[in-house]
Computed example of a mutant assay.
Amino acid sequence: MTKHKIYTMSVASVYPHYVTKAEKKGRSKAEVDEIIRWLTGYSQEELGAQLEKQTNFEDFFAEAPQLNPSRNMIKGVVCGVRVGDIEEPTMQEIRYLDKLVDELAKGKAMEKILRK
């Protein structure tokens, strides 16, 4: 079975799109970074290093220091697929991130986005 194209894409190539999506709705790059850090456990410095070295999505999530145990509370649909129904672990992590950025762009409060 061939890997989905997103797995081999660098997080750095998609990251500006996350930031642009958030900023168009009056949110900030700092909030996007906070979401990514919450989901993955990377520090701001580690996140910057991952972006700088063009880490692909598969390695980005495989090397994540501490995937947040509360991420299973992320519900909803991304690209027509319910995130909780995605069986492939890496794809589910990518879709969790997509869903969190969507929630940010829709104006949801950070406390709710971060499942506090």
Rank of each mutant, 00 (worst) to 15 (best):
L67I: 15
K25R: 14
M1F: 12
T55P: 04
S43R: 05
F57H: 09
I35Q: 05
L47S: 02
V77P: 06
P89T: 08
V14K: 11
A64G: 08
G76C: 07
A105H: 02
R82D: 15
V19C: 05
V14S: 10
N68R: 05
E87G: 15
M91S: 13
T20W: 10
G107H: 01
K5F: 12
V14T: 12
Q50V: 06
E58W: 11
Q92K: 14
P89W: 07
T20I: 11
S10V: 02
Y18L: 09
E23D: 05
K53M: 09
T8I: 10
E46R: 15
V101M: 05
A64T: 02
V78F: 13
A30C: 00
P89R: 02
G84Y: 03
C79Y: 15
V11L: 08
E34W: 08
E31F: 05
S28G: 01
D85K: 15
S70Q: 14
Y7P: 02
Q92R: 15
E58G: 09
L39K: 03
K116W: 00
K108H: 11
Q92L: 07
P89K: 06
P65Q: 06
V32D: 04
I86F: 03
R71A: 13
S70I: 00
I86V: 14
I35Y: 06
G26V: 02
L114T: 00
